[in-house]
């Protein structure tokens, strides 16, 4: 992937943001009656101005990239990319299941999976480390900081 492609991706991201801003101004804010009037009533003027500035700046950045003609390649090996995507997938699954299955059933497997993605293969050591990290943090947060971690559908909470 080149720097130009990445800039275009960021430009696409901001295009979506700007579209959302204007869509919200013309629908939700208009219906609430806060999209017009003076500085007190008009809650849409400021985000609209920022969205316009962002559009201008993004356009300028894209033009600069196109004019410069540089195609700097981002160095990323397939193995690195695989690890990065693997981490994101595992973490997304973890966050998705955290509320449903609870902290204790999800955290150790997530830690184990991340260590595996990193290339660790000493199963016994990894298992001990995953359990120690998971329960260690739970102890500190629940015992000392009074945080109630998600118990999930099984209501799994340890009364430390």
């Amino acid at each position: 992937m080149t720097s130009k492609t990445l800039t275009l991706l960021v430009a696409a991201f901001f295009a979506i943001i700007v579209v959302i801003v204007f869509q919200q101004i013309h629908t939700s804010m208009h219906e609430q009656g806060i999209a017009s009037g003076g500085p007190y009533d008009n809650a849409a003027a400021y985000p609209r101005a920022i969205a316009i500035i962002i559009s201008g700046l993004v356009l300028l950045q894209v033009l600069m990239e196109l004019v410069s003609g540089s195609r700097e390649r981002i160095p990323l090996s397939p193995a690195s990319l695989k690890r990065a995507v693997g981490l994101l997938v595992v973490f997304a699954i973890y966050l998705g299941c955290l509320g449903w299955l609870g902290y204790h059933l999800t955290t150790s497997p997530m830690v184990f999976a991340v260590m595996y993605i990193c290339g660790a293969r000493q199963i016994g050591k990894m298992l001990v480390a995953a359990l120690a990290m998971s329960f260690g943090f739970a102890f500190v947060f629940e015992r000392f900081l009074n945080v109630v971690l998600p118990g999930g559908v099984f209501n799994l909470n340890i009364p430390w």
């Binding site: 955290l98 955290t107 997530m110 991340v114 990193c118 290339g119 990290m133």
Partner: peptide, 16 residues
């Protein structure tokens, strides 16, 4: 490989 999961747990519990 020990540090990365530690930080991920900290991010998750801290944010929750």
């Amino acid at each position: 490989f020990y540090l990365i999961p530690v930080i991920l747990i900290l991010c998750s519990i801290g944010t929750f």
